Simulated scan of single mutants.
Amino acid sequence: MPTKPKCSVCGKPVDPATRPFCSKRCRDVDLHRWLSGRYAIPGVESAEDSDETPPLAPRD
């Protein structure tokens, strides 16, 4: 028997109208966590992502 999905914020059973959350409140809590930077996807900044321009190489 498959288990019922649970809200990732509070653990209550998921409501189909607000899936994958149990309520609008939990959906908004999750959105706020993303917007405030609490959730982050780790990554490595490459030279292409940098805002700084690299120094020019001297010409011969």
Rank of each mutant, 00 (worst) to 15 (best):
C7A: 05
D28Q: 13
D49A: 12
E48I: 05
T3L: 06
L56G: 06
R59A: 11
P55K: 02
E52A: 07
C22T: 00
R19Y: 09
H32Y: 15
G11F: 04
P2F: 12
S23I: 01
S46Y: 11
P2L: 11
R19K: 15
R38C: 06
P5C: 03
T18D: 08
S23C: 12
E48K: 04
R19I: 01
R25C: 03
P58M: 03
S36C: 13
V9N: 02
S23D: 01
D60V: 10
G11R: 01
K12T: 03
E45P: 11
P13Y: 02
Y39Q: 03
E45N: 13
R27K: 10
P42E: 09
R27G: 08
R33Y: 15
A40S: 10
P20W: 02
P2C: 02
K12S: 12
W34M: 07
D49V: 04
T53V: 15
I41L: 14
Y39N: 12
K24D: 07
K12W: 08
S36L: 06
G37F: 04
C26A: 09
C26V: 00
R38P: 01
S8F: 08
K6H: 08
C22G: 01
V44E: 14
V9F: 11
G11Y: 05
M1Q: 10
S36F: 07
D51V: 10
D15L: 00
R38M: 13
S36I: 13
P58H: 05
T18P: 01
S50K: 10
T18F: 15
M1F: 11
P20S: 01
S36Y: 14
P16Q: 11
P58V: 11
R33Q: 14
E45V: 02
K12V: 00
H32I: 05
D49G: 09
L35R: 09
R33F: 14
D28E: 15
H32G: 14
I41R: 06
R38K: 09
T3W: 12
E52S: 13
A57S: 12
R38H: 04
E52L: 12
T53Y: 07
V44H: 11
I41P: 04
D30C: 08
G43N: 15
W34P: 03
D60K: 05
H32V: 14
T3C: 06
G43K: 06
S50P: 03
E45C: 10
C10R: 05
C22K: 00
L56R: 06
K4Q: 07
P58A: 06
E52P: 03
V14E: 02
S50N: 12
I41N: 13
C7K: 01
K24V: 03
G43R: 10
W34V: 04
L56C: 05
K24R: 13
R59V: 03
R25Q: 06
S50W: 14
K12G: 01
